[in-house]
């Protein structure tokens, strides 16, 4: 499978932001990032059983002086809510890239409720939400949002729209 160049540029933006810990719950839209992170000897890449673990992992990394990112899809956002009190209360950065489901050409109705709620519940929980819709500015969006999180010590989520990543195709 050929990798879209915008995904390469997102990985380079994370490296430029000095991210060295990556936690993830897999998503097809993050597959390239996950593979690149595992292949990078300077990055500790941690597979999680549930998304809230990634918030705690990021907090621990920050306590120890490292910057991290958490990769998840929108269906996992609901698992995070109480754990988001950790970066908010401790005035820590938290940086997450969220691939959106349930919005652009979605086949699976079970993805729609959490996809619809994602920007709202993140905002309500104290996360600053940005949205990347276009391949040509997604890396810039990631770089600027990482700076916002790590320099201003706040939680920031970048939502990768389903149009950007491409709707998952189900074959009957």
């Amino acid at each position: 499978m050929e990798t879209p160049t915008w995904q390469e540029s997102v990985f380079r933006a994370l490296k430029a932001a000095r991210v060295s810990v990556v936690g993830y719950v897999p998503d097809a839209g993050h597959a390239h990032l996950i593979k690149s992170a595992h292949a990078d000897p300077e990055i500790d890449t941690v597979v999680l059983t549930t998304e809230e673990e990634g918030i705690a992992l990021s907090a621990g990394a920050w306590l120890g002086g490292k910057r991290s990112v958490m990769l998840m899809q929108s269906s996992g956002v609901g698992n995070c809510i109480n754990m988001l009190s950790l970066p908010v209360t401790c005035r820590m950065p938290f940086f997450t890239l969220v691939t959106m489901r349930g919005e652009w050409g979605e086949f699976n109705p079970w993805q729609v409720p959490m996809g619809t709620a994602t920007p709202h519940v993140l905002t309500q929980a104290g996360v600053h939400v940005r949205r990347a819709d276009h391949a040509d500015d997604v890396a810039e969006m990631v770089g600027a949002s990482a700076a916002l999180a790590f320099d201003s010590h706040i939680p920031v989520a970048v939502l990768f729209s389903q149009r950007l990543i491409g709707a998952k195709v189900f074959v009957k």
């Binding site: 810990v21 705690a56 990394a61 120890g64």
Partner: peptide, 17 residues
């Protein structure tokens, strides 16, 4: 608070230090 997160905070810290 952050109930359920203590072990993962420990992991992030251990990886960073």
């Amino acid at each position: 608070g952050a109930m359920g997160g203590t072990a993962m905070i420990g992991l992030g810290l251990a990886l960073a230090q």
